[in-house]
Amino acid sequence: MHLTKEELHAALVERHGADIQQKLDHASVGIAGLGGLGSNIAVHLARLGVGRLVLVDFDTVEISNLNRQHYTMKDIGIPKTLALLEQLEAINPYLQYEPHTERIVPANAARLFAGCDVVCEAFDRADQKAMLIETLLERLPDTPIVSGSGMAGCGSANLMRTERRFGRLYVCGDGTSDIADGIGLMAPRVAVCAAQQATMVLRLLLGHTEP
């Protein structure tokens, strides 16, 4: 079934309300890393009808990604930006998607996410998380950042939360569980953290600054 832009938008307005949907229509969100966190965050935001999504990742889909990331076997070997773009366009083809297949470094981070109302940090490695957060806090001084920290293993989801730090940095997760400790990443907890990040993004876009 093919829906027109007007039909799909009307369905979103019916579910979300006209005032909320208008804010989402004009919103712009950046997602740094399209793995277990980023791919799921992007799907949530596309379903909300967020008007512009900036999608950045340098990697391709691998077999090891399939246990928690929003990809399928047919995506193996394809750049994550392109595989995810196909999924998002199947959900809502009328949004503005900006895929960038490149590695994020201090020299390009501000350029990639300029104009975003919120940026989601969705990297795996702690050093990369720190690099992006430090860079964006310095170079995009008015942009909130929503980060994920602590989603490994099979501990209770009740331990996961959203905290506000440094004024405009929000951190989601349990804050402690780490694959460096030999704990694996599993779909449910990764998805919970991604949903927490997407929820905080939604709240920020609607003007709510507290977790």
Rank of each mutant, 00 (worst) to 15 (best):
A122N: 06
R165N: 04
K74T: 14
K74W: 03
C120L: 12
M186D: 00
G148P: 08
P79T: 11
I183C: 09
T101H: 09
I31V: 15
T60E: 14
P106S: 02
D174K: 00
A194Q: 05
S147C: 14
G207W: 06
E14K: 10
N65P: 13
L136I: 14
R125D: 15
K74I: 14
Y170V: 02
H16L: 15
S177G: 01
D174I: 00
G49T: 08
E163K: 09
I183M: 14
P141A: 01
Q87Y: 05
I63P: 01
E210R: 08
L140V: 05
C154W: 02
D178E: 04
C193S: 08
I183P: 14
S28Q: 13
E86P: 03
V13T: 07
A157E: 09
G49S: 10
G207D: 07
N65H: 09
I78W: 00
H9R: 15
L3W: 11
A195H: 01
L185Q: 10
K23M: 15
Q22R: 13
V43A: 11
H44T: 14
R139I: 01
T81N: 10
G36K: 03
V119H: 07
A32P: 10
E6D: 13
R68C: 08
I183L: 11
G36F: 07
A90S: 15
F58W: 04
V50K: 05
T176R: 13
I41C: 14
K74C: 03
H2P: 02
I183N: 10
C172E: 06
A83P: 12
A187V: 13
A42D: 09
T199R: 13
I63F: 07
S28R: 15
E6F: 03
A10V: 01
R161V: 12
L112C: 09
A130E: 12
L140H: 01
T162S: 11
S177H: 01
L136H: 01
I31G: 07
E163W: 00
D117T: 05
I76P: 02
V61G: 11
A187T: 14
D117E: 11
L137P: 12
Y94E: 06
Q197R: 04
D75L: 01
V13F: 02
Q96M: 07
L82P: 00
I145Y: 05
L202T: 05
S156C: 00
C116R: 11
